[in-house]
Amino acid sequence: MSDHAPRLRRALALMGPFLGLLLVFGLFAALEPNRFLSIYNFKTIATQTVIVGLGAMGMTFVIVSGGIDLSVGSVIALCSVVIALLLDQGMAAPWAVGAALLAGALVGWVNGVLITRISIVPFIATLGTMGIARGLAKYLAGEQKVDAPAEGIAGWMAKSPEPTWLMVAPGIWLMMGLALLLAATLRRTVFGTHTIAIGSNEATARLCGVRVARVKISVYVLCGLLAGLAGVMQFARLTVGDPTTALGKELDVIAAVVIGGGSLSGGSGSIAGSIVGAFFMSILANGCTLVGVPNYVQEILIGTIIVVAVAFDRFRSASD
């Protein structure tokens, strides 16, 4: 009669992606020990993970609630343009960041309203806003990159940050901190429980008095907000607002969640898993580049791994 069994099971569910992560890590460490196993390279990997990682945390909530958000890549681009334009006009950095986050949240709110109030299935609703947000970004930027003064903000994604005791870019600390907060939100709050309940069985949630529409809108706003933050980080990395950036990034984000144990039928998924998934993808990309594997092989590899991860998950849940 141990009440800890499910916690153990959840830990085991995390083991799969984590073991995969170790495996890829070990593989590249063996193939290219000098360049792969350097502190500088670790910092590179971690920095590369931030954008997909932030997006994946928001996407985790969406996928756990049984939805999908295809607009994430476009929102990253839109928000990077928004912050660049505002900084260029001389707005103070905190306000510009706030405005970019607001833009992301707004797209999320539109997604949520389309899905709940007008009953458009999430795939289609966010496919629509994916195009709209991308087009809007191009319009605002005049179809070109927006240069902007990025003092202060650029340091967020610097591989050698100031002050030096930070060791890695502030963006990475921010991502890790948010990961802890959001993991607790998903497992330990009324909102998180309601999100899981909707994904597990929407009819039950409604019957239990969960205000389904309200929770779903919040979930998409959260996802938009985090995608907006990813856009700010993208700007910090490139120091330009690029309306064509992060094209197809939503698929990497979804892949990270799925590799981390999220199920598109809703109800399952975890923040920790999604972060592992995000690291998995950037280690793979980084290692392949170092070893000199051509880009197309990388793509085939990632595609294969997604399928294997999900097949493994199916197999595990069937044997339960």
Binding site: A197, N201, A203, T204, A205, L207, C208, V210, G267
Partner: peptide, 23 residues
């Protein structure tokens, strides 16, 4: 299909309609 969320735990199902006293 409606009464219970099958994949959720006894505790989660039992308290879902009134989480307030526990939060």
């Amino acid at each position: 299909n409606e009464g219970l969320a099958a994949s959720m735990s006894i505790a989660e199902n039992l308290t879902l309609s009134r989480l307030k006293p526990h939060a």
